[in-house]
Amino acid sequence: MTTTTVHPPDQPTNPPLDPVSDRDLARTPAPSAPHPPGIPFARLIAVELRKMLDTRSGRWLLIAIGVVTIVVVGFVLFASRPQDLTLSTFVTGTATPQTLLLPLLGVLAVTSEWGQRNALVTFTLEPRRLRVMLAKLVGSMVLGTVAIAFAFLIATIGNGLGILLRNGDGSWALGAASIGGVVLSQLLWVAQGIGFGLLFGSTAVAIVSYLTLPTAWAIVGSMVTSLSTVSQWLDLSRAIEPLVAGQMSGISWAHLGVAAGLWVILPILVGSWRMMRREVK
């Protein structure tokens, strides 16, 4: 073992490099200019995606999402009345567990950095923290999209089996509006997970807040009559209902925009601001 592989890349005062080092330079082209290029954003996304998949917690979360999706479709297949077995029913069935689990992708992508103090390494390799955060956002969206696509696939298979096994209705009708609505709503939940992860920093606090805060708000909103109008605007799950159903109108887009602003955009903004200024220890 030698230490000759360790040398500064472009020091004019260097002694002549030995053959081993020359080979190293050829393999890892050291920047000859004093300003090496920065890290491309696509590469950061790829790194963040890999980080979501290379730990047990990340892998098991994805496996859990897949398994739960299959179980739900199986349940719908055998527990529903044959005349209700349509693609739309199956898709709606898969959406429910995914709504609960997908945001965890976002939460974990952010909080695993702090819990394991991995941020120390992440932010020394890319000190522009906002880029890292955006890479995590895009990365978890990509994974979320894969999960949703998987759900559509399983729902399609479920509908096919419904026709074969239970003589189900088997309607394949699924409007573009509902497909888009399901995808958009799930991605909103993923983004909310990112926002809550950024805001609270710890996995446990972020998950508990994510599960309880909007629900608590929804309960208060439905119980107190005077809040009912307000809750149309500020309750995200209520605002998302017409989106999933593919029945968006002008006013419901406005409801959705305001609610998403409060529960998704605001946590991301405040959380990013916190993360940018936070001392990494």
């Binding site: 890349p9 050291a30 920047p31 300003h35 090496p36 290029p37 920065g38 890290i39 290379d54 730990t55 047990r56 917690s57 695993s112 394991q116 103090r117 991995n118 120390l120 390494v121 020394t124 390799l125 890319e126 000190p127």
Partner: peptide, 20 residues
């Protein structure tokens, strides 16, 4: 721009995800 290529940093060897 790409600090890892210019500065090697070790602040805490245990600050890595234990599952990797």
């Amino acid at each position: 721009p790409n600090p890892g290529r210019q500065v090697g940093v070790l602040l805490d060897a245990s600050a890595q995800h234990a599952g990797r």
